[in-house]
């Protein structure tokens, strides 16, 4: 039994900013509320948040394309947020019409959005669940309908690991997913780090404290440990623009300002 009443689903809270809607706003989307926009603008004063979002989103695309190249055709996108530009199913289905994608998020508006968007897409679905419950997610009929756990899976935890506090042991969480996956499965993960701009990041932590999704940035070493039991593919865990850039000039002279480390790894 938990302390709060977990059997009552949290309602739709439009007052308290949500990370998913803040991310949408930073990416230029309109699926957000004044509170989300205000928080985003505060964030922009502390960190290059628009660039962080854009670079992270671009990493997602490159990672998915890489996984498709590696022969992965099914994806589980944890903390998928509001469907915005460059959704995983759009990228994957463009490359392989038989690819399957299941999105997972716990924010009801984000899920409702995804449901509306995916109504006509047979190969993609969305599950409302907390990514901290791998057993529930991996057992969910919606997931089982589209995803075969005996075959390699692309597990996407892009820009979400920082939402899991140490108390919830993200390392053990990733390991629980890892153990359920077939060999050859891949993990694509990116997460906020202190390493580049500790003060700005501390400010961001403070700002997110007043949202539905407090953040817990980590060091390179801590994020690297999330890949335990996987084999990182080249170039390892790096700032998002450095991960297999489409063009050398895209990296720019300050990749660290992305403030997110990213990596893709394979379960052997």
């Amino acid at each position: 039994m938990t302390e709060s009443s977990s059997w009552v689903p949290e309602g739709v809270n439009t007052e308290l900013p949500s990370a998913a809607r803040v991310y949408d706003y930073l990416l230029g989307g309109g699926h957000n509320f004044p509170g989300d926009r205000a928080l985003a603008e505060e964030l922009v004063r502390l960190l290059p948040a628009r660039d962080m979002s854009r670079l992270n989103r671009a990493f997602l695309r490159r990672a998915v394309l890489h996984l498709l190249d590696a022969g992965i055709t099914q994806f589980l996108d944890l903390g998928s947020g509001i469907p915005t530009v460059g959704n995983v199913h759009e990228i994957a289905l463009a490359a392989d019409p038989t690819a399957r994608v299941v999105y997972v998020d716990y924010e009801p508006v984000a899920v409702a959005h995804s449901e509306m968007l995916l109504r006509e897409v047979p190969n993609a679905d969305v599950l409302r669940a907390d990514m901290r419950e791998p057993e529930k997610i991996l057992r969910a009929p919606r997931v089982r309908e589209l995803i075969d756990l005996s075959a390699p899976l692309g597990l996407l935890m892009v820009g979400v690991a920082q939402f899991i506090p140490d108390d919830d042991d993200p390392w053990a969480l990733v390991a629980r997913y890892r153990d359920a996956l077939a060999p050859g499965s891949h993990l694509a993960l990116s997460a906020f780090t202190w390493d580049n701009a500790p003060e700005g990041m501390a400010g961001a932590v403070e700002v997110f404290r007043h949202s539905q999704d407090p953040i817990f940035p980590r060091t390179h070493q801590e994020i690297l440990r999330l890949f335990d039991g996987f084999e990182l593919v080249e170039p390892g865990l790096v700032y998002t623009p450095l991960w297999r850039p489409e063009r050398a000039e895209d990296v720019g002279d300050n990749a660290a300002r992305s403030n997110l480390y990213a990596g893709v790894a394979r379960k052997t």
Partner: peptide
């Protein structure tokens, strides 16, 4: 997009109420 958002909100509220 705001229209979308309103639709999503209604949809989400319905879902949540049904879940509730």
């Amino acid at each position: 997009e705001q229209q979308d958002l309103r639709d999503a909100l209604v949809h989400a509220r319905n879902t949540v109420e049904r879940d509730l």
